[in-house]
Nucleic acid binder design. Structure first.
Lengths: 115, 115
DNA sequence: GCTCCATACAACCATATGGTTGTACAAATG
DNA sequence: CATTTGTACAACCATATGGTTGTATGGAGC
């Protein structure tokens, strides 16, 4: 079996909705089924179900069948994948700063005429 | 003047597109104007311009007028705001683990009948 | 097996999104 | 001042998204 590469479009897209972020937050440490989760929001059961499906396809939550319910749980690894991308951007930023600092401290080809 | 509260819908929404993420990546350490950025992508200038406007409204890039160009730069503070939200979720997760561990190590009200 | 409860999914609708082309504005250059 | 270059924005179109209601499936309890 192949491990799926992270789908950042789906991941960020899933997080770009307040209801879905709230589901992620709740499902971190709750053991609620779809219906119980749905009861927190002012929309139909089916709407919440769709939100959960979107989070699931993005790899941000998992569902486990227990009896006739399906427990929704936040997938911490999914969150970490997203975070790591942002870390990479910040690393690029640090790299830029470092290069600028190096340039100032140790100019490779400086002439007197340089500003 | 009031500092705007972070708009996570816009932020995650902005990052949910490969072109926009690539613009963020490039603009971390480039000094390109809108047209120069646009030249990297197989779409019209106006389309890229819209992408940049979306990133700008989300607080993920800034534009600085230089001559007749506008330099697009990634805003590292915007990225950090997003990252911090993910950090908070991970903290919740750690909290859950801690509580579970505590429960096992030091059950507050244990009876022999407990599983 | 029938019924109830939790979940899933299809069909539909309004609006948002991502692309296009065309036009207008702003600053450097002749 | 006219031209060129870079940016902004409006109008338009196709498709995606977020919501609805209705129907179907699957497991627990009688």
């Amino acid at each position: 079996m192949q491990i799926a590469p992270p789908d950042f479009d789906r991941m960020f897209g899933a997080l770009a909705d307040p209801t879905r972020r709230d589901i992620v937050r709740r499902a971190v440490d709750s053991e609620e089924g779809v219906a119980e989760l749905a009861s927190h929001y002012p929309m139909s059961f089916a709407a919440v179900q769709k939100h959960i499906a979107i989070l699931e396809r993005a790899g941000l939550v998992t569902k486990e069948r227990i009896g006739r319910r399906k427990i929704v749980r936040t997938n911490p690894e999914g969150l970490r994948v997203v975070r790591r991308l942002l870390d990479r951007y910040e690393e690029l930023w640090r790299g830029r700063i470092d290069r600028m600092t190096t340039l100032v401290a140790d100019p490779p080809d400086r002439k007197e005429t340089d500003q």
